[in-house]
Design a protein around this nucleic acid. Structure first.
Length: 518
RNA sequence: GGUCCCUUCGUCUAUCGGUUAGGACGAGAGAUUUUCAUUCUCUAAAGAGGGGUUCGAUUCCCCUAGGGACUACCA
């Protein structure tokens, strides 16, 4: 039957991992796991100009946080290494020579300046069958002169010799058959004049072949160069084991036109990178999903549905469910606008499901940032009481203040300050205070105080039983006035839960203070 | 400009020629409520336009429009 499924995610270490790249990696991961295949992590660092030293480590840490694991590759090892293209130059050289020898490629001496001049002189200049015979290359210079120039140390590139006039068919898993005529392709540079390194196209094909990649699942931006890649497989004699292609739709801006960029995130207020990124040169930082309080499972679930849908109505899925349901054929063809508001919703769904004890440490540190010292037990209790509230936020698009549900642990802060900080003054102009602190309130609170003070225990049930009995007997509705005492305004959880959290001493103290000051 | 890809509610999408075009986010309304919420219920909201093919098109084909990508000795 068919060969073992082997896929790869092969980023270029030129900066932080883009969220679109995360989705591409996720789809590769789902596909590999579903098919019992292997997933390879390769670093495509053939661009020495744009190389950023901290990027590789950043990408590795990103996947570690997200929970996407590889079977082979940089930092994972494996028998098809090395997995960094910069360490494979000898390998590429061999295949470049093979292409040169078989006549599928040729040597070109045109300098960047000469190329620029050609492009300036002819509106749609392309280095191809129509123009190559008017350029400075081994085809026009002849073997002898070519060897002389090379021997003299003249910089040269190696270009692929595209034969025009052929329809190249690509059988894309997502898009079906795509046909492109070779005449529109240019003689791509395969090997750069400096550093003895190949370009993406050559390195990619050589590595995918040598690493026995069965499926190339990548972004749509590669679709236009897919025919070139097919031609390369053929020229190298590898057409029989050529991988299957699947070109994924792109992630687009939430508003307006174009693909998703870092600027959109900055403007609208959402991260486009998995982790906080600090540019090593400028020291400028960019938000990360992790630091912004997103749960990795939520990010993955959200991303999975941006361009793929299993066909049922279930949106919240575990990794296992995604793996079993994933289907490249069910990926959409059109780009997806990045709906970050729905991302908040996913995060909320996952946050609500988390055990309070797991959320507690994070909430403790958030409270600490606001000068509040709390135990994990307290934080867990606060989370349970406050996770179903909502908060105000400024909408990135309209600039309006809107409300949304708690989606992040950090959302809890402005909602829960009163658990730890007692009211020190009361705003009589406040609508809630004015409405709920009447002339009877002080007396009601005195009575309630005595009931609470006399309770054998101060747990929620004991309180509720005693207060309900009092309420039934007297008809007094004490809760809102009591809330004024303990909170100072119209927010917070159930009063008994709040009182139990504060403890009897603090509860009575706040009541006494309110009675004396209101 | 050229080449290729794409086009269902505001957004993500379901539909594999016959449906009251479904779900979710977001929006609005109502109910519940011990504040603010949560929750629940309901509502509005879509097949880009024009031609075909067919008994019948959202679905298949063509054209137009619109969107996207690519067009580097970057990936």
């Amino acid at each position: 039957m068919s060969a073992k499924v082997r896929v790869r995610f092969a980023p270029s270490p030129t900066g932080p991992l883009h969220i679109g790249g995360v989705r591409t990696a996720l789809y590769n991961y789902l596909f590999a796991r579903q098919n019992g295949g292997e997933m390879i992590f390769r670093i495509e660092d053939t661009d020495t100009e744009r190389f950023v030293p901290t990027a590789e480590e950043y990408i590795i840490e990103s996947f570690k946080w997200l929970g996407i694991t590889f079977d082979e590759g940089v930092s994972y090892g494996g028998e098809y290494g090395p997995y960094r293209q910069s360490e494979r130059s000898e390998i590429y050289k061999k295949y470049v020579d093979q292409l040169l020898a078989s006549g599928h490629a040729y040597v070109a001496f045109d300098t960047p300046e000469e190329l620029d001049a050609a492009r300036a002189a002819h509106e749609n200049f392309q280095y191809d069958a129509a123009t190559r015979m008017s350029m400075r290359n081994s085809l026009t210079l002849g073997e002898e002169e070519t060897q002389r120039l090379i021997a003299a140390g003249t910089p040269y590139t190696v270009r692929f010799k595209v034969v025009p006039g052929e329809d190249i068919h690509i059988d894309d898993i997502i898009r079906g058959e795509v046909v492109i005529n070779s005449a529109v392709l240019d003689d791509k540079v395969l090997y750069k004049s400096t550093k003895q390194l190949p370009t993406y196209h050559l390195a990619n094909i050589v590595d995918d072949h040598l690493m026995k990649i069965s499926h190339v699942i990548r972004g749509e931006e590669w679709l236009p160069s897919a025919p070139l890649h097919v031609l390369l497989y053929r020229a190298l004699g590898w057409q029989d084991t050529m991988p299957r292609f699947a070109h994924l739709p792109l992630l687009l801006k939430p508003t307006g036109n174009g693909k998703l960029s870092k600027r959109d995130g900055d403007k609208l207020g959402f991260p486009v990178f998995p982790l906080l990124w600090t540019d090593p040169k400028t020291k400028a930082t960019s938000h990360g999903y992790r630091e912004d309080g997103y749960l990795p499972e939520a990010v993955l679930n959200f991303l999975a549905l941006l361009g793929w849908n299993p066909g049922d109505d279930q949106e919240i899925m575990t990794m296992e469910e995604m793996i079993s349901k994933f289907d490249l054929k069910k990926c959409s063809k059109a780009g997806a606008k990045f709906d970050y508001v729905k991302g908040w919703w996913f995060n909320r769904e996952y946050l609500l499901k988390r055990p309070a004890a797991e959320v507690a440490p994070e909430l403790v540190s958030i409270l600490a940032e606001h000068g509040v010292e709390a135990t994990e037990e307290q934080a867990a209790a606060v989370f349970e009481m406050m996770k179903t509230k909502n908060i105000e936020y400024v909408d990135g698009q309209s600039g309006q203040t809107k409300k949304r549900n708690v989606s992040f642990v950090a959302d809890l802060w402005p909602l829960c300050d009163f658990f730890f900080i007692a009211p020190t003054e009361f705003n009589r102009e406040d609508k809630f205070v004015r409405k709920n602190w009447t002339e009877h309130s002080a007396e009601d609170m005195r009575q309630l105080r005595e009931i609470l003070a006399a309770l054998p225990d101060f747990d929620v049930e004991t309180q509720r039983a005693a207060v309900d009995a009092w309420v039934a007997e007297t008809g007094v509705k004490p809760w809102n006035a009591w809330r004024v005492c303990l909170v100072g305004q119209g927010k917070g959880p159930d009063m008994h839960e709040l009182a139990a959290f504060l403890g009897r001493e603090e509860t009575l103290r706040r009541m006494d203070f309110a009675i004396a000051n209101l």
